[in-house]
Structure formats: C-alpha cells, structure tokens
C-alpha cells in the first residue's frame, strides 16, 4: 500500500516538474520582495513566474507555499540568488541597499516600485509589475478598472454627506494597547477615499492613545482590523474600554472590523476594501 502511495507521489511530482519546466522554459523567473507586489502578481494571474517571495507575502494563501527569502527589509542575498531569479520586484523599502546593488551586479534585473498607500502609487506598482512580466495590457486594464471602481464609489459619499461627514477613529494594536492612525498612514488614505474624517488628522503616523485622549476624540465610527480586535480581547472588551465606551461610535455600536491586509494593503483589492468600508460606515 505504502509503496503504491509513494510511487504515485513520485510519478505525480515527476509530471509536475516536467510540466512546469516546459511551461517556464522561456518565462522569466521572478522573486517578489513585498506583499503588495506579490498580490499584484497573483491578480495578474502570473503566479507561475514566481519562484520565491519575502515573508510579508501572505496573501493570497498560495504565496505561503513558495520559498521565503526573508523579510523584504533584510532579505537574504544568497536566498534570492539560489532561486535563480531573472527579475526581482522590490518595494522602495526593500533592502539592505548593498544587497540590491549586488543583485544588479550579478546581472539580475531589479525593479523598485513605490510602496506608498495612495492610488497613483498603486497604479505605478501595477504598471511596473505588469511591464516586468510582459503583460502591459493586462496591467493597464487593471489600473483602469480599479480607478473606475474607486471613482464609481466616491460620488455617493461626497455629495450626500459633504456637510455632515462622519468622523472616524482607526485603531491598531499589536500588544493590547491600541494606537490611533494619524496622517500618512494607509488607514488615513482609506478614510479619505471613503469620505470619512479622521479624528487624528493632526497626528503623524501611529501613536499610542491615552484613555483620556481617546475619550476627547468622540468618533462616530471606529475602524479596526481583525488582528487588533483579537489582541484587544474581542468586541465586548473593545466597547467596554474606558475612553472608548463613552464615544458615539461605541454607544451606537458602530465598529467596523476588517481584515488587516484588505483594509491596509492598498493592493488590487482596493475597490472591494473601499466598498466594504463604506457600506459598513453608512
């Protein structure tokens, strides 16, 4: 029994290898250093080119099956070389810079794409990835589709609620103590696109919030992520939290919980994320 089993496995593996080598014969071998870029590669249906990814590439789940060459900020130079890549797609935060320079020296095409959380950077990312994979039309079409979808979502908010915009507080927590999202965060960018006013617009980045500071903000809506909610001890604990409990959002139970990567990833799923956020904030 066991022999048959292993024989079939070997046979299967053999076919898979033969098939994939045939399919990849002329295709570029790509390493992606950055979750957002990996997501774009999958969205372009070009994942067969991917030979390795970095540790931040966790969506879609299939990306976890690929070899991981370390976190994009400190990827392993030899790990990338061992994957025999032709092209390395990297976000502008990837490094160390000497390692990228050495990849170039070894004749590997390194393409660095902007990592910011806004629509134009997303378009640049998609176009860059698509160009590297020889799929410029598909990339162009995806960019068009996304900007159309986002535009279609927007008038609904800006006309109907321009005077009475809801205020929102985005909470993020890694260790139990919540931090609020200020300017220059992808959370802030999402709020702007969704027509919500960030109560922490005066602040730069994520900062810890005191209970009193939280109470003073009085947001209409609280936005948070699934991992934050679990690290804060669930919805009941969040609503009962001193400082939050008194806010209009908690009183009316208007807490929006979304998947971390969907809400903050600024990837090809942006329209979907925006749709979810806006329908929940209505």
């Amino acid at each position: 029994m066991r022999i048959y089993y292993s024989l079939t496995t070997i046979l299967l593996l053999f076919f898979i290898t033969v098939f994939s080598t045939l399919a990849l014969a002329s295709a570029p071998r790509v390493v992606s250093l950055g979750g957002p870029l990996t997501e774009i590669i999958y969205a372009l249906n070009a994942e067969q080119h991917l030979v390795a990814v970095d540790q931040s590439s966790v969506y879609p789940a299939a990306a976890n099956q690929l070899p991981k060459v370390g976190y994009y900020r400190q990827f392993s130079l030899e790990g990338v070389l061992a994957s025999k890549a032709d092209i390395v797609l990297a976000t502008d935060q990837a490094g160390p810079p000497q390692a990228l320079a050495q990849l170039r020296k070894m004749g590997i095409k390194v393409i660095v794409l902007p990592g910011q959380a806004n629509l134009s950077a997303l378009s640049q990312r998609i176009r860059g990835v698509a160009a590297a994979l020889n799929l410029p039309q598909q990339g162009e079409q995806m960019v068009k589709q996304i900007s159309q979808d986002v535009k279609a979502l927007q008038p609904a908010t800006s006309t109907s609620t321009s005077t009475s915009t809801s205020t929102a507080l985005m909470l993020m927590s890694r260790s139990g103590e919540p931090e609020g999202a200020g300017k220059n965060t992808s959370a802030d960018a999402m709020m702007q696109l969704a027509g919500l006013r960030n109560v922490l617009a005066q602040q730069q980045g994520y900062k810890p919030l005191s209970r009193e500071g939280m109470a003073a903000l009085r947001p209409d809506v609280i936005i948070t992520t699934t991992s934050t909610l679990s690290s804060m001890g669930g919805m009941a604990a969040l609503l009962a939290r001193p400082g939050l409990a008194q806010s209009p959002a908690a009183k009316n139970k208007r807490v929006i919980v979304m998947d971390d990567l969907l809400l903050l990833g600024f990837g090809p799923r942006l329209p979907e994320a925006l749709r979810q956020l806006m329908s929940a904030a209505k």
Binding site: R73, Q74, P96, P97, Q98, A99, Q204, G205, Y206, K207
Partner: peptide, 27 residues
C-alpha cells in the same frame, strides 16, 4: 522612536538586531 513612522520603526528594529549582509569588498 515615538516620532518615527511605521517604515522607520521597522528600519530601527532591524538596525538594532545587527547584520553582516552589507559586507562587500569595498567596505
């Protein structure tokens, strides 16, 4: 650290953990 944004925080963390990955002949 308090003033740093998300990206800078990550750079800080990695710097503090040390690395020999930048070793080149020039250095």
């Amino acid at each position: 650290t308090y003033l740093a944004d998300d990206n800078q925080l990550r750079s800080l963390t990695f710097w503090n953990m040390g690395s020999l990955a930048g070793a080149t002949w020039q250095r």
